[in-house]
Design a protein around this nucleic acid. Structure first.
Lengths: 99, 99
DNA sequence: CTAACATATGAACAGTTATTCATGTATAAA
DNA sequence: TTTATACATGAATAACTGTTCATATGTTAG
């Protein structure tokens, strides 16, 4: 027993965070957002899913505070909530490419 | 304007990686392994699950190449496959603590 | 040898999750 | 106003996932 072990609550939250990233549609959405803000229709197209499915995913990502919104007329533009998200994304990519 | 920086296959693999981290038992297992190698019984205790459940999780983590094994008599010692795993873990912790 | 131990594994079951479909709300155009 | 567009949402369904239980394999102790 060397370093401090993680608490059960931290483990649960961390797992929830990773689970939010554990879907290929959401990964494609986040990849698209890493190039700048996009509206729901564009994200649906980027991930090759319906707008309804995209909207469900965006709610999920919003609730996890991985994305933020900006409303402009009929459109809702999403962007990554902060740089940590892109870091996590890059860190994961690093692993699958040098595995 | 599709500057999609990721292929569908990369998205699928990345999602699979994050999904492997998307369980609180596996998170506690990885947290335990970040302090050094452990056998299955110790990992089961660290995550508060049965040895059978732990063994199932270890197979999952092994198949995802997140952990390696070293056999010694009746015991099987697991360790993190490389430093990327600990990096990912730390990166996720960073986010949930400064979200 | 037998018995206990450490781990692995398949099947079954319960809980979760992603998608589709239908519908609703809000904004803009005609 | 009426119509179309952009997004959101609840319900239903199908697919997936983690755990338990029973059992099997291999190793060490007695």
């Amino acid at each position: 027993m060397n370093a401090a072990p993680i608490t059960e609550q931290d483990a649960a939250e961390l797992a929830e965070l990773f689970r939010a990233l554990g879907d290929s549609s959401r990964i494609q959405i986040i990849a698209a957002l890493s190039t700048g803000e996009q509206n729901v229709g564009a994200l649906a197209e980027a991930a090759n899913i319906s707008e309804s499915a995209a909207s469900h995913h965006m709610r999920h990502l919003r609730q996890m505070r991985l994305v933020r919104t900006r409303k402009e007329g009929r459109f809702v533009y999403y962007c990554l909530d902060d740089d940590h998200i892109a870091d996590l994304f890059a860190c994961g990519l690093e692993h699958i490419r040098h595995g």
